[in-house]
Design a protein around this nucleic acid. Structure first.
Lengths: 328, 328
DNA sequence: CTGCATTGTGTAACCGGTTACATAGAACAT
DNA sequence: ATGTTCTATGTAACCGGTTACACAATGCAG
């Protein structure tokens, strides 16, 4: 490994001078600068980030904690933060918590041990000691809290929008699929939907599910049709179960959207690929990730700043699992 | 931040002693050990990984370079390596190359700057200087090379298997979708399929595509049916375009699998969710990631070892876009 | 010509760990 | 009793950077 000392020796200057040209601070003579530059070139030197980080007490790393990148909603968030972070010279240390506190704490410890300069986390547990005692810039992503800045989409509004849409399009017996109770955004959108359904002139039932896992999505769908065979409008807890429901409905010979309307949540990329393509409530995932990184980097610059949260708009993406306007 | 010095002071011993109890090496008296342990507890101390890494010239980080975690095949690889790495106390620094050499080189630099102890990479460019001059344990994932150990699935065999299956099930006019030319595994499976199709008594045509992106998948599908409306068997370049093809076929009123059979590649989780569920060639992605991490960690232990590659089996997953055996 | 500010460069302390080496007491062998 | 080995602990060098500080040369004002 070629170190700053090698460069210094090669250029016949001190390490301090090399460091100064690297960081472009302090005084360096034009002549000297050139010598150093060539030495760096010739030795193909690149500074050790670890050493720098030790002295500076801060790396160029950002910790990113997500529930599970295997769920197609999250890779988009991740790319958003990664791309924006990269644009500012930061890199991402990624952790999947699987919504498990143990893992979450482990990762946070790792982040701290590696001197990350900030953290972005999609957690339901900001109120734990672990976070409280952290004195790092921190931004919540896809989650909210009164104590930290956050970037999130309005789940309640999303839930309302889904329910309103279904009602407006003439669904009479709505089934609302409720996501896992320990996942905050899932309950937000559930509540939003219930608010609207409760006020409207429709029958509705709720089916609870306990996970978003692919493997179980088809089971939820099957269970749903067993319990509520007469339903003519389904609000899925997310696009995955939405797509699973399309599958199951088609299997049972239901006509979509004439007999049965379905509306998903998230607008993951594959929801336009289903047939019929899934109507859904879009969360701008990539953009959310990007904004979170932006916010974090801003706070790394001025940590004192009072915190600002960003609520992103949700949006109805009308595809073909809902009817063309069926005004009452 | 609480450092080893604070602990030492608090326990009235030297930093060396604290370090010795932390690492469980050297001699430490029972009494002293206890004192140190309590001090650690009381101060809630956890050692700074950066400092350790500097001295040891090696962190507990592994660099993982993937094309794009937004493509659902890769998150599974990523989880495989992450989980296995975690089991051995390693963490993952993730980079998305987008199959772009610039980005790839940037990430590699970041990895070495951060003293990663090893790298796992899905690259088509192992032969570049960047890699040659690297003296880190390195394993290829989902790619091959004669110079490095690799974990990959047999693409040629997968292509053959897909073609054989379609032929055996009675397809007469096969369309083979060829993936991007610069992605190695894509051309392997293409070649495998061509081998079999060339020998068989069927007509076949090839349609070239230049990306795996979601946004374009439907366009490829549309183009395919325009160019080859009479096809009765399609080998998709991966499951995403497979699913897009199902969509387009259904839209055009084709009966699947009676009129048209489709076979995908990868077995991403969502391919069982399509309707009809997609028959596909499975690559054991999670397991591949896991094995790659395993292999890498092994090599970190004994770097001299001559390198072993692991070829994982591909497997036909018969779902409902192919017919129940239609023996000739 | 003198004094002060500006420019250029080097020396060494520092970041927070690990470990080689020194030192000393205890245990054991002869 | 003495030498040797084992156990226990501390001191200080080291990892590869950054930067405070010291010092010298130069420029410029008065």
């Amino acid at each position: 490994m070629v170190t700053i000392k090698d460069v210094a020796k090669h250029a016949r200057v001190s390490v301090a001078t090399v460091s100064r040209v690297l960081n472009n601070n302090g005084y360096v003579g034009a002549e000297t600068r050139k010598k150093v530059m060539t030495a760096i070139e010739e030795l193909n030197y690149s500074p050790n980030e670890v050493a720098r980080s030790l002295y500076k007490r801060g790396s160029r790393l950002i910790g990113l904690l997500l529930p599970d990148i295997t769920n197609p909603f999250f890779p988009q968030l991740a790319r958003g933060v990664e791309d924006e972070a990269g644009r500012h010279g930061f890199r991402v240390l990624l952790g999947n918590s699987d919504e498990d506190i143990e893992k979450e704490m482990d990762y946070i410890q790792t982040f701290v041990q590696n001197n990350v300069v900030g953290m972005i986390t999609a957690t339901n547990h900001v109120d734990y000691d672990m976070y409280q005692s952290l004195d790092l810039p921190l931004v919540l992503l896809d989650r909210t809290s009164s104590s930290y800045p956050a970037v999130y989409a309005d789940g309640r509004e999303g839930g309302r929008l889904a329910a309103e849409t279904l009602i407006k399009k003439g669904a009479q017996r709505v089934t609302l699929v409720k996501g896992p109770a320990h996942v905050k955004p899932a309950v937000d959108r559930y509540r939003g939907a219930v608010e609207v359904l409760g006020e409207a002139d429709v029958d509705f039932s709720v089916m609870s599910t306990t996970s978003y896992a692919f493997e179980e999505a088809l089971n939820w769908a099957e269970e749903l049709f067993k319990k509520f065979p007469e339903t003519d409008g389904i609000i899925a807890s997310n696009d995955i179960v939405g797509i699973a429901i399309i599958h199951e409905a088609l299997k049972r010979g239901k006509n979509i959207p004439e007999e049965l309307q379905i509306i998903g949540y998230d607008d993951i990329p594959q929801s336009r690929l289903s047939y019929p393509p899934l109507t859904t409530i879009r969360q701008p995932a990539y953009e959310m990730g990007r904004r979170a990184a932006e916010l974090l980097i801003q706070r790394i610059g001025q940590p004192q700043q009072e915190h600002r949260s960003i609520q992103m708009p949700v949006e109805l993406i009308e595809r073909h699992t809902t009817r063309k306007d069926d005004q009452e």
